[in-house]
């Protein structure tokens, strides 16, 4: 499912217009992206939580050529599946 399919599903399920559904989907992912870029945690009960994890610099290898490469320190969002979602997906 992509964003467009999500918008039309929301339009139908919540009985709102397509442009309203598009705005809601935008708000949802924008506010999560905003939170993560400010290193703020996200907790959406039943769905998932996110926090920013700091990774230190390390020496990696190019898997194709075997060359050593220095990987710079980076931040990545760490995803944790919510209880309800975990149970529904795994049944």
């Amino acid at each position: 499912m992509n964003k467009l399919e999500m918008i039309s599903a929301l339009k139908k399920e919540a009985n709102i217009s397509k442009s309203e559904a598009a705005k809601v989907v935008q708000i949802f992912f924008d506010s999560m992206a905003d939170a993560l870029s400010e290193e703020e945690r996200i907790e959406i009960r039943g769905l998932c939580s996110f926090f920013i994890k700091n990774y230190k610099s390390y020496t990696g290898r190019n898997p194709k050529t075997g060359d050593k490469v220095q990987i710079q320190p980076k931040k990545l969002p760490f995803f944790k599946c919510g209880k309800e979602l975990r149970e529904r997906v795994n049944k």
């Binding site: 499912m1 992509n2 999500m6 992912f29 039943g46 979602l85 529904r88 997906v89």
Partner: peptide
């Protein structure tokens, strides 16, 4: 509306379908 959106995402994953959000 927000609960509907969360339900749509959960249902898609439950039905083994990935959810792709560009950006």
């Amino acid at each position: 509306i927000v609960e509907s959106l969360l339900e749509i995402i959960k249902r898609s994953l439950e039905e083994n379908e990935d959810v792709l959000v560009s950006g």
